[in-house]
Design a protein around this nucleic acid. Sequence first.
DNA 1: CTGGACGTTTGATCCTGCTCAAGGCACCGC
DNA 2: GCGGTGCCTTGAGCAGGATCAAACGTCCAG
Lengths: 243, 243
Amino acid sequence: MTASLHDFCARRGDLTAPCRLCGAREFNICQALDPAQQDKLFALATRLQLGKRDRLFAAGEPASHVYNLTEGTVALSRSLADGRRQILGFLLPGDFLGLEVGEAHRCDAETLTEAKVCRFERAAFDGFLKDNPEVALRLLKIASSDLAQAARHEVLLGRKTATERIASFLLDLRDRSGARHLRTQPLALPMTRSEIADYTGLTIETVSRVLGRLKSGKVIELIGASAVRVLDDARLERMSGSS
Amino acid sequence: MTASLHDFCARRGDLTAPCRLCGAREFNICQALDPAQQDKLFALATRLQLGKRDRLFAAGEPASHVYNLTEGTVALSRSLADGRRQILGFLLPGDFLGLEVGEAHRCDAETLTEAKVCRFERAAFDGFLKDNPEVALRLLKIASSDLAQAARHEVLLGRKTATERIASFLLDLRDRSGARHLRTQPLALPMTRSEIADYTGLTIETVSRVLGRLKSGKVIELIGASAVRVLDDARLERMSGSS
DNA sequence: CTGGACGTTTGATCCTGCTCAAGGCACCGC
DNA sequence: GCGGTGCCTTGAGCAGGATCAAACGTCCAG
């Protein structure tokens, strides 16, 4: 599962600039760093190859590592004692996860697809942070934009109708995928209906019905169950009730 | 409205340590600073006295300042075009607000009570941040715990019943008030039913009915409309369905 | 190619919380 | 003290989405 630094570099055939060929380099935490710092940071990293439905960490576990997702999709979620689950967000390549203020992780992190991450020992990462204040500022920006995303999600969950939630979800996923240069037409839905339901605060049946209605209204086209093509952008936007 | 540095110090009769008597000193952003740094930071601050229902900033406005609440209660909210509103949280003394990654504020901030804040020019604050990396780390912790709070709120909005939402809201407000040494028994509710509704994703009628039920079930006692006494802690906890 | 398992769709019915409506209460200015 | 204006409570009826149930695909192992 764990690829050694040497393995990683060998696989890429570029020992001197190991991050240079990383697919998520443009978006992730390394972005702000000059090559020397990148090398230092990379020396702290373990690259992991993860399978489908692998758990990176669970709520309550000691937060011993932080992660930078470089390939694949990850879902963050929290569950109630009786099993009700709320998915907090779907992470895409470049996204950073696992940074906690306290000792323990506050949510579960699970891959939806095969995925690759850079994993950092938390203690080592904290040390790097102290020596590289500009990385702390970058993390602050990341946290702040995560907070903005959470706020939009709270509006979705607290005040939007089922149709608005699904429309918002589709547009948000499309925009974020687009920003990462992932294919958006058709747009892959690596999550199941159950996961869409747990993200939107609905049930699978309602998710399925709303998607069906959007389809028969020619707003979207469903390609199998795990891809969509947006046919009427403007209408979907209007249906999302955003802002 | 704006008190000068001199006014502020004079009022307290302590020119040499202006932050030392601040009611929120124990909790707010100044916490981690040594006296010399505190003085520098304080030189950047404008102290503001705000009235009830004053707006600190609105979504979309240029984020020209950041704020540290030192007295009173503030609500952060976002609204949809048709007026539906979602309150993201209620801020208490010591809470920090207004830090945005981009140019504009992403939510509205309004006082619920008379309040006092320390306001910082954003540019000056950013400069201070660059010179004091440990403040950036502290802000990172604040952002991270805001994110944890947002996650709990997402669970509340997406997966909890009306009763669970109200119970969770009361317990959360009580715990956060207690942590700031505010009175918790009875616990003041500086927000209206409408604001509780917009925080919990319910309607005023449902909020009122659930509070009525908790009251007739002897779980809480209502003291007027804007204070509660928790009579049965354990039961309220169980009703909140947390974690 | 076939059987089974799992995820998805679709249908019928139910229920929680919303909407609409009216009445009560408390606070404030006059 | 008195009227008025918000805010809060309570009631009746409704509806959006949940629940329960069943059929349908699709993908994979054998």
